[in-house]
């Protein structure tokens, strides 16, 4: 059991389609490595600070989507530049005042290692807090989606669920999803890449507005 390579403090940004940067971190659920989530999807998200109002509303709402995410084989893990003791106190405070249990681990990233590795600190906003970042990491530990929100704006949990559904639909059926897609809606058949495939496409029984724009229903 080898220790993953620790990162330097040089700021970096993950890239879609590339392996998620490995880390080991202290969390409210003990010491966790990214590799511990292999085989499951992971939503790694950061918040600016414990005991702040927008973050509190987000934690309550993340807790509410933990169960539907679990049914989709997705785990949540939070992060901020606060201590484990602060996280524990805040989680207990949320449970006391909002009657919501926080079921996911929260990274205590006091030395900013993970935040730096994932480019979570936006110096234009704050040099001491992480912005509201979301990284969707697939079961093979590839970064599949990233969302960045500013300090002032709480995230939309319905969109996070929709994003997971869209990514999992893409993986399962080899399709793309159109704007504002929701589960049950028609999906986009990937455009053909050769002239022959374009000719075949219009005969294939899809609903085609044009050779490059074909949709289909997925099996229920």
């Amino acid at each position: 059991m080898e220790t993953p390579t620790q990162n330097s403090q040089a700021p970096s940004f993950p890239r879609l389609g590339q392996p998620a940067p490995a880390f080991q971190a202290e969390t409210t659920h003990g010491t966790i490595r990214l590799e511990d989530f292999k085989g499951s999807w992971l939503i790694l998200f950061s918040h600016p600070a414990d005991f702040t109002p927008v973050c509190t509303t987000e934690f309550v709402e993340f807790a509410k989507i933990a169960e539907p995410l679990g049914k989709r084989n997705v785990h949540l893990m939070g992060l901020s530049i606060d201590s484990t003791y602060s996280h524990i106190a805040w989680i207990r405070n949320i449970e006391q005042h909002f009657k919501v249990t926080i079921p996911f681990p929260v990274i205590a990233d006091l030395n900013k290692e993970v935040a730096t590795l994932y480019g979570m600190i936006m110096p234009g906003e704050s040099k001491t807090e992480t912005s509201r970042c979301v990284f969707v990491i697939d079961p093979n530990q590839i970064i599949r989606a990233m969302i960045y929100y500013p300090l002032t704006t709480g995230r939309n949990m319905a969109e996070i669920l929709r994003l997971i559904d869209a990514l999992q639909t893409t993986d399962k059926h080899g399709v793309a999803t159109p704007a504002n897609w929701r589960p049950g809606d028609k999906v986009i058949v990937p455009p053909p890449k050769t002239i022959e495939a374009a000719t075949e496409r219009v005969k294939a029984g899809y609903e085609c507005t044009e050779w490059y724009f074909c949709t289909k229903e997925l099996p229920k």
Binding site: H29, G30, T31, D36
Partner: peptide, 12 residues
């Protein structure tokens, strides 16, 4: 328990 929890504790 979720697998990440068991993997991390088992490692320790």
């Amino acid at each position: 328990l979720p697998v990440y929890r068991v993997r991390s504790t088992m490692r320790e």
